[in-house]
């Protein structure tokens, strides 16, 4: 089947999405399943077929999700109902919508990159418990409790650690 000329193709829109928390490994396929499941659960199969979602790119913390033009609102609402991806807790923050992937890539380039802490694992104390810093971005600090039992990620600020 030959490729349709541009004027006959369906118009598409692309959403630029930031994945939180930082450092979460994103597999495009897993994210697609999460997006598809959220859309089907919220809007049903009929609307899902109109949205035609696809995860077209995953670049570090940013993901570009495609939909058909006119269904951006439905896609955005469905994206806000995603809480896990392959049993990993995530949140998707919509940054921008555009008609081309290139403009979103340009947007990613212009966005200030997060200040990562590459100085190796750093240990701190929070609520009298030793914690290990996972990610540091400005005032935001993500830590993980040290120990065998509790390895939950905690979302703190620098002030929370400085208090002690």
């Amino acid at each position: 089947m030959s490729v349709r000329p541009p004027t006959l193709r369906e118009k598409r829109r692309y959403l630029l999405v930031l994945v939180e928390p930082a450092g979460t490994p994103i597999d495009q396929k897993d994210l697609y399943y999460a997006v598809s499941s959220a859309i089907t659960s919220l809007w049903g199969d009929v609307m899902a077929s109109s949205i035609m979602p696809a995860v077209v790119a995953a670049e570090e913390r940013f993901v570009i999700i495609r939909c058909l033009r006119g269904t951006e609102r439905e896609l955005a609402i469905a994206l806000s109902t995603i809480t896990t991806c392959h049993e990993v807790r995530i949140a998707l923050r919509i940054i921008a919508a555009s008609g081309t992937i290139e403009s979103l890539r340009e947007r990613i380039r212009t966005m200030k990159p997060p200040v990562g802490d590459d100085s190796g694992p750093c240990e701190c104390i929070f609520e009298k418990k030793p914690v290990q810093v996972l990610h540091c971005d400005g005032q935001k600090i993500d830590v993980i409790e040290k120990g065998f039992k509790n390895t939950n990620r905690l979302f703190l600020t620098k002030e929370d650690l400085e208090e002690l």
């Binding site: 955005a76 809480t83 949140a91």
Partner: peptide, 15 residues
């Protein structure tokens, strides 16, 4: 219960 559960005003408007 987490910052991951918080939603933007625009998202709340959509929901």
């Amino acid at each position: 219960h987490s910052v991951l559960d918080m939603r933007a005003v625009r998202e709340i408007t959509g929901l």
